[in-house]
Amino acid sequence: MAVGASQSRTGLGDRLRSWQVHHRLSALDSLSRLLRSPVSSLMTWLVIGIALALPVGLSVALDNARSVSVGWDSPAQISLFLRSEVSMDAAGLLRERILERSDVASARLVSRDQALEEFRQLSGFGDILQNLDDNPLPNLVLVTPLGGDGQAQRAAELQLALQDEAGVERAVLDMEWVQRLNALVELSQRAVGALGAILCLGVLLVIGNTIRLAIENRRQEILVIKLVGGSDAFVRRPFLYTGFWYGLGGALLAWLVVAVALWWLRGPMATLALLYQSDFVLEGLGFLDSLGLLVAGALLGLLGAWLAVARHLSAVQPR
């Protein structure tokens, strides 16, 4: 064996092909290893799945809350309650005067009779109202400020200006509760974000620890591979795939948990919406969100495995 010559130096094409082959082998082998110990793998998958399902489920709930409030989000509305002595004609003139302002988008006159009728329909107090001798409601002008940047600030200024109009008893800016709701939603989003970050860190640690144990279990194999010339990348590969499968499986479980929870809530939610005369429908995870969840899970798995491998693999050296 003319050693130098027949020492088959493999060609680049061969090496690339075998690199792909080893990737495929590592991916399949690491998956089948996980499936060969289904109980412990399922435990890990469940831990990851629950940790991911929590922030994902909460953010789905928040998205739904936002879709409820989005209709009320803007434009804000200023209700002008007119003095009782102001007649409908005078109210009409007032409305036209207000419409001429540059910072007003629209103004609508609601007579006290219309208001009573609306109240009767929407409040559910119809029977009681019938017993009233007198209509207690004032005439009303609903003013919508111009939208755009700084809307809240300008709406507040408009409210002050309208308050001083003759015949106006009170100008109420119906924006505070929307602002409160929005602030609440934003706060919740931050909280869910923080929770998500913490739980992702948890997932990283779980996967890292699981991979560390896998490295311990396959110590002998790693030693032999290093002795016969396996590169660090070669040794690392199966463990990275193991992390990938843990992350992907966990994300799948998380998706399942969220889907089941939404399905569980859909019925009662529809009933509730019906009671509020709303056509609100609980939105689940869309296709892109689901895909994002799976990709994020797989990436978390890879990252966790990478951290564990970087930390523990170099400690396994043939001696």
Binding site: V21, L227, G229
Partner: peptide
């Protein structure tokens, strides 16, 4: 010997070739 007991004789002997990047037929 440092053999790996979780795989066949063939796979044990094939390990250096897998590492060096030989085609499956080779």
């Amino acid at each position: 010997h440092q053999l790996l007991f979780d795989r066949t004789v063939f796979d044990n002997v094939a390990l250096p070739l897998l590492i060096a990047g030989y085609s499956p037929r080779d």
